[in-house]
């Protein structure tokens, strides 16, 4: 465990580009560090002309230089001041975090790697599902493809190195384990994670008012369903 004082140092502020700053909160995948990233994102979201992009341990601020320019000074200086001020304010919006419960059909044709994960973890299939469903996850960031959530909070017993032979196409909705993370493929994509189940929900749908089902910082839980319920929910999602 890192020392608490090291954990709570203010983030380092790094200049990335003419229109971008990066706040670094740490250098590893860690739930407490990621919590700080999302807390900062909530506080900084209201800065005008600034786009916040959270990642595991850092937060990108991409800004419109013209809106932050004052006189001759580089716009970065003004934004840095505004960021420092905003981060000093108290954060009481954590209560507003959404929790989304995603239905998953585990195993069988929906999760062809469930047996491999169980063997690797020396657990039964049922125990793997029980542990995957028991945890509460955080959407650490979205990336790789539109709407792909990297979820923190996997039971360490289920962690498993990625496949040595990535699949050329993983079906949309696949719920998978890669290293210490779990995630959901929003569309058919190449992928090297182990597929343990599939959700009938659409994670990314341009017809929806909000195309991505999940947002950075959301809490996610999984709920086990069977093939029949999967088919019923899938039909509803297609409607």
């Amino acid at each position: 465990m890192p020392k608490p004082d090291a954990m709570w140092l203010p983030p380092s502020l790094e200049t990335l580009a003419e229109d971008a700053l990066l706040l670094r909160f740490g250098d590893r995948i860690d739930a407490a560090v990621n919590d700080r990233v999302h807390a900062a994102a909530r506080r900084l979201a209201s800065l005008p002309g600034v786009e916040c992009v959270p990642a595991y341990a850092s937060l990108l601020l991409r800004f419109e230089p013209a809106r932050w320019r004052r006189g001759d000074a580089a716009p970065h200086e003004h934004l840095r001041e505004a960021v420092a001020t905003a981060l000093r304010e108290s954060d009481d919006t954590e209560a507003a975090t959404r929790e989304v419960t995603v239905p998953v059909w585990y195993g069988a044709e929906a999760g062809p790697d469930l047996d491999d994960v169980a063997a690797h973890a020396r657990l039964t299939r049922e125990e793997v599902v029980a542990r995957h469903v028991a945890a509460s996850y955080r959407v650490a960031m979205l990336g790789f493809a539109p709407g792909f959530p990297y979820l923190l909070g996997l039971d360490p017993a289920l962690a498993m190195p990625r496949r040595t032979d990535p699949r050329l196409s993983v079906p949309a909705g696949s719920v998978a384990i890669g290293g210490s993370q779990t995630g959901i493929y929003p569309q058919a994509l190449p992928g090297g994670w182990h597929l343990i189940g599939r959700t009938p929900w659409r994670l990314f749908d341009l017809r929806a008012a909000e195309p991505s089902l999940l947002r950075p910082g959301d809490r996610v839980r999984f709920r086990a369903i069977d093939g029949t319920e999967y088919a019923r929910l899938a039909a509803r999602a297609d409607a």
């Binding site: 670094r24 250098d27 990108l60």
Partner: peptide
């Protein structure tokens, strides 16, 4: 050993 973070055109 790095953790993924935001990238930009020009990086």
């Amino acid at each position: 050993e790095l953790v993924s973070e935001a990238t930009l055109p020009g990086t």
